[in-house]
Design a protein around this nucleic acid. Sequence first.
DNA 1: TATGAATGAGGCTTCATTCAT
DNA 2: AATGAATGAAGCCTCATTCAT
Lengths: 217, 217, 217, 217
Amino acid sequence: MEEKQKSRTKWKQDPQAVQHDILRIARGEFAANGLSGARMDEIASKTKTSKRMLYYYFGDKEGLYRRALEAAYDDVRKGEEALHLEGASPDEGLRRLIEFTFDHHSANPEFIRLVMIENVHNGAYLKESEVIRSLNVSAIAKLENICKRGIAQNLFRPDTKALYLHWQISAYSFFNVSNRATFALIFSIDLSQMTEQSKLRDLVVDSLLRSVLINNG
Amino acid sequence: MEEKQKSRTKWKQDPQAVQHDILRIARGEFAANGLSGARMDEIASKTKTSKRMLYYYFGDKEGLYRRALEAAYDDVRKGEEALHLEGASPDEGLRRLIEFTFDHHSANPEFIRLVMIENVHNGAYLKESEVIRSLNVSAIAKLENICKRGIAQNLFRPDTKALYLHWQISAYSFFNVSNRATFALIFSIDLSQMTEQSKLRDLVVDSLLRSVLINNG
Amino acid sequence: MEEKQKSRTKWKQDPQAVQHDILRIARGEFAANGLSGARMDEIASKTKTSKRMLYYYFGDKEGLYRRALEAAYDDVRKGEEALHLEGASPDEGLRRLIEFTFDHHSANPEFIRLVMIENVHNGAYLKESEVIRSLNVSAIAKLENICKRGIAQNLFRPDTKALYLHWQISAYSFFNVSNRATFALIFSIDLSQMTEQSKLRDLVVDSLLRSVLINNG
Amino acid sequence: MEEKQKSRTKWKQDPQAVQHDILRIARGEFAANGLSGARMDEIASKTKTSKRMLYYYFGDKEGLYRRALEAAYDDVRKGEEALHLEGASPDEGLRRLIEFTFDHHSANPEFIRLVMIENVHNGAYLKESEVIRSLNVSAIAKLENICKRGIAQNLFRPDTKALYLHWQISAYSFFNVSNRATFALIFSIDLSQMTEQSKLRDLVVDSLLRSVLINNG
DNA sequence: TATGAATGAGGCTTCATTCAT
DNA sequence: AATGAATGAAGCCTCATTCAT
C-alpha cells in the first residue's frame, strides 16, 4: 500500500497537464458509470489535483462530461488518421479499412461506452459541441475515395454509397463492443475472446466484401 | 408535499394491475434516464400509486430496475413469437426474418435503450435474473431451422452459422436504433425518417442475403 | 449547558406545527442576515426538525424566504386588525392611528428588517407572492374612512388623500426603525431609548395633525 | 479561466485611478446585492484590474465594503455642499433645503441602498469607520442656522429643533427611495414616476412647512 | 505592482429509503 | 394494502482567499 499522497510539486503551473489529467480520469469514470452515475468526488480523488479544479476548468459536471466526450472523439479521430491506404487496390483497401475500424473500436471500449451513454441522452451534449462537427469530413473521406475507385474499376457494385457502407461497418464494429455483455449472457458465449474476435472480424470483412464486390461467386 | 396527489379512484385492491402500472412507468423512466439517472420520486409520481408501493413490491431501486428490464425482455420475446415462417423457402424465410427483426427493434426503442443501459452496467443485473435465461432458446430457433434448410438445399453457403448470422442481424437492427442520435449529429442525416429507414432495411436485407446465398451474382 | 437533544417525540405528525416552527426561525435568521447571509444549516439547527424538512416543505432557500416574508406580512396585518376606531372623532382617530402604526412598527423590528431586505432585492420575491396582494385593501381602509369623515366635517383639509397620508405615516414609522443604527452613529444620539421614542412619536403625531387639520394655529 | 480577461491598455501604474475604479464598481455591486450577496469575482470582473488587486488594496471583502461605504458617504456629503442658502429667508431656506434633500436622495439610490444594507448590519461597519464621524457637523449646520433665524424672526414655532427636523426630512427623503419596491407592489402605484415624485415632493415640503411655521392657516 | 493558477471550507440541494399509522 | 411525514448520507457547487511567479 502506497502512502496516499499526491505529488503536488511539479504538476503545478502546468494547466495543460492538469486539464489533460482531469479529462483522462473523467472519461474513464463517465464511461464506467454514466453521466449521473459518475461522481465528481470520485473523479477528483483519482486526479492529481483537487475537486475544486474540476469546476475551475470545466464549470460543472455537464461541462466536464462534454469536454471528456469531445476529447474521446478527438482521440479516436486522431487514431483513424494513422491508417494509410494510398497504394492499395479498392478491394484490398476496403478490407483493410474494415479490419482497421473493427480493431479500432475493439481497442477503445471506453470510447464506445461514452458514445452509448451519449446516445442514451439523445446526443444532447454532442449537440452543443462545436468541436464535433469537424469530425464528419475526415471520418468518411477515405471510404469515399475507395468507393469511387472501386466503382470506376468495375469492382464494386455501382450503387455502393460510402455513407451507407460506413453505417454498416460502424454497426458491426460498434455492436461488437457495445452489446458484448448482454449477448454473452443470453447466448452463453463470450465473443470477447481473441479467437472469437478474429472469427467475427473475418465474418464482417467477408460478409461486407461479398455484398459489395461484383464478382464474389 | 414533494409529490402531487392523484385521485386514486378504484385501482386499489388490484395488486397485479398496480405492479404492471409501476413497471410500465419504470421502464420508461429507466430507458429515458438510465439507472442512476432515473428518480424514484419521478417514477412514483407518474404512477397511479404512492412511492411507498414501489418499495413494497420491488424492494429497492435496483430491484425495480431488474424487474422492469425483465418485463421488457419478456414483452419483446412475446412479440417475436408472432412471426411464423413455416411455409417459406429458406431464402424467403431469411428475408422475412431479417425484415421482421429490423422492424421489431425499430418499433421498440425503449427496449433498445434498456439493453444499452444494461450493457453500460456490464450486464450486472441481467446476470442476476433467472427469467432471462429462458430467452435464448426461442430467440434463435427459427433462424437455425432456416439455416439448416438453406444449407441442405444448397442455397446457403455451407459454413453459415445461425448464431453468427443472428449476431449480424442484431448488430444492424440494434445499431439502427441505438446510435441514431450521434450518427445524425456527425453526418447531418436523420436516418430515422421513414424513407431512410426503408432504404436501410433494404440495404441490410440485400447485404446479408448476398453474403449468405451461394448464387447471388 | 443543556444536553443538545431535540424532543423529537410529540412534534411528529404535526406538519402545521413543524412548518410554523421553521418559518418562525427562518424569519429571524433572514431578518438578521439577509437572504444570502442567512444559512440553511443555521436555520435548521435552531429548528425542532432536521434540515431536510426545510426542503421538504419549502423547496429551496428562496422558497423558504418567500414564505417567511409572507408570514411576516400576514402577522403584521393581523396585528393591525386589533385597532378599532369606531367611536372616535376624525382627529382623535387619526391621532390614534398614527400612534398605533408608529408603535406597531417599533414593536416589530424583525418585520421592518425583512421589508428592508426585500427592498434591497427590488421586491423580487414579494412580486411572486399571491398572498401579499390581499393586504392592500385592509391596510388603508381605516385611514380612508377617517379622511372621508374628517373632510366632510370640515376638520381636514379637503385635498387630504388617504394613500399619501399613509405614505407619510409609513415613512416616519418605518424610518424610525430602519435607520436607527446609522442615525445613531452619525449624530451620536440613540433614538431607540424610550424617552426619545416617545418624543419622536409626539413629534410625528403633532406634525402630521398640524399639516392635515384646517385650524391648527 | 473563471474570469474573462480585459484589454488592459494603459491603466497600469496609476494606483489612485485603479482604486477609484474598484471602489466605484464595488459600491454598485454591494448596493445591488448586499454585503454577503455581492461576489468578489463579479466585482473583479467588472473592474479594469484583476481580483488580486482587490485584496492588495483593500485586504478583504469587508475592508472593501467599508471603503466603498465611506466613499459613498463622502460623495454624498460633497454633493450637499453645493447647496447655498445665504441670502434666503428662513422659510424659503427651509423649503429649498427640504427640496434639495429630497431630490438629492432621489438622485442617489445607490447610496440609499448602501445605507439600508448597513442598517441591516446594525451599522457594524460604519461603527469602525473613522471617516464617517466628520459628517455630522456639516450635515446639520445649515439646518441649525435656518432654525435659529426662523425662531428669532417669530416665523418658526419656538420649540423647533434642527436635529428632529432633520430626522423628519430624512425619513421622507429616505423612505421615498428605500421602500419604493414594496410600496409599489402593495398599493399598485409606481411612485417613482416623475409626476408622482413631484407630487410627493410638494407634499413633503408643504407638510413640513405647515408644521413648523406659526401662521400657516 | 501585478497576475493566472490553485484551494479548503462550507454552502445549497437531492437522493433513496424508512417510520408511524 | 396503503400512505403522508420524515430522514441521514451524500451529492454538486461556490465562496473568499492565497500561492508562485
